[in-house]
């Protein structure tokens, strides 16, 4: 029981006897730190696994600023990195309001602690919302591509810039393929989303426009850009297409290696879940502050402890940001 109480009112706060706290830290704060160390190792494991995979496919890994190019309100504008920079800034600001809450707690200013906690919660919610939007764009995709029989992704290029399927496939679909839905099923079956275009349709449209070329997954080590095939090579390569890919899921994505999307979903998802738990914990502590629990207790150490967790989430994001978006 005593383990749950950071500092007792009868001054027997020293774990279980004695007069000095080990390392001058309360039990709760020390355990929060040790939890953070172990959680940091978990995230390191994930990011290291991402690193291994990236090194394994170093000659064909997707280029991040060609993948994350959206910004709210700017449709069709190529805006790499701006949005994730904004998200990073929002999380840093939420860390600042959190540390200001801790600071106000040291001075026993209940109202200030409450307001700063409130601000932290709001910024946290904005961050999670932004992440959801980022996922939405990633899952929806922006250009579309085709997958070949040997599981390579082919993207389309016109005048040196990637072009969306919708911008050059204008013919009618010939195969009469429609989405199979449950209400038409003999049994209760449905199927994954059918792509907007058939493979034959894409091949036909590609043949008709001589200015189109194909970009393969392989990177040119000299320029660090994806290799673009000549028109003749492109036509031959496109014959091996077997599936039209729009957007991303765990099996296939239009940006390249399937495992790139898998790691993106898993690591940002795991981080987003940490942010979500942080928001819930912050809300609980916020209500305790408002109700005066810590005012009665005589100190705001609980705010300090959730603050540690919240800063840790920010710390992890700094690394996720670097290794997914920058490097």
């Amino acid at each position: 029981m005593e383990a749950n109480i950071a500092v007792n009112s009868d001054n027997k706060e020293t774990w279980s006897g004695g007069t000095a706290k080990p390392f001058g830290a309360s039990y709760g704060k020390m355990m929060m730190w040790f939890f953070i160390v172990s959680d940091a190792l978990t995230f390191s494991g994930f990011l290291a696994a991402y690193g291994l995979t990236r090194f394994k496919f170093i000659d064909s890994w997707p280029i991040a600023d060609e993948v994350f190019t959206h910004f709210p309100g700017l449709h069709g504008v190529h805006a790499p990195m701006y949005y994730v920079a904004l998200m990073t800034f929002i999380l840093i600001v939420s860390s600042v309001t959190m540390v200001l809450a801790v600071d106000a707690g040291h001075k026993m200013q209940q109202k200030k602690v409450a307001w700063y906690m409130f601000a932290t919660i709001i910024f946290g919610i904005i961050f999670v919302g932004s992440q959801a939007w980022e996922w939405k764009n990633f899952i929806g995709g922006s250009y579309g591509a085709v997958k070949t029989t040997d599981n390579q992704i082919l993207q389309f290029v016109k005048d040196g810039h990637q072009i969306a399927l919708a911008d050059f496939v204008h013919t009618e679909r010939q195969d009469e393929r429609v989405q199979h839905v449950r209400q038409n099923g003999l049994w209760f079956e449905d199927e994954p989303t059918v792509a907007n275009y058939s493979v034959a349709q894409v091949q036909e449209a590609f043949k008709q426009d001589p200015s189109l070329q194909i970009r393969i997954q392989k990177l040119n080590p000299e320029t660090k850009q994806k290799v673009v095939l000549s028109r003749e090579e492109s036509l031959v390569k496109l014959l091996t297409a077997k599936q039209v890919v729009e957007g991303a899921n765990l099996h296939v994505n239009e940006y390249g290696n399937p495992i790139f999307a898998d790691f993106f979903f898993f690591i940002t998802g795991f981080h987003g879940f940490h942010v979500f738990s942080g928001i819930i914990i912050n809300i609980i502590i916020f209500f305790n502050v408002v109700l005066g629990t810590y005012e009665k207790r005589g100190h705001y150490e609980m705010v300090e402890k959730v603050g540690l967790y919240w800063h840790f989430v920010d710390l992890v994001w700094v690394f996720v940001f670097t290794f997914f978006y920058l490097v």
Partner: peptide
């Protein structure tokens, strides 16, 4: 207290990265 936290994490993470990234390079 600071060293117990920072040195532990830095040592273990460096070791993990060293092994795993070399393995990734080998796979490539």
């Amino acid at each position: 207290f600071r060293r117990a936290i920072v040195w532990t994490a830095v040592f273990l993470i460096s070791y993990l990265l060293f092994i795993i990234l070399f393995e990734g390079d080998y796979l490539n």
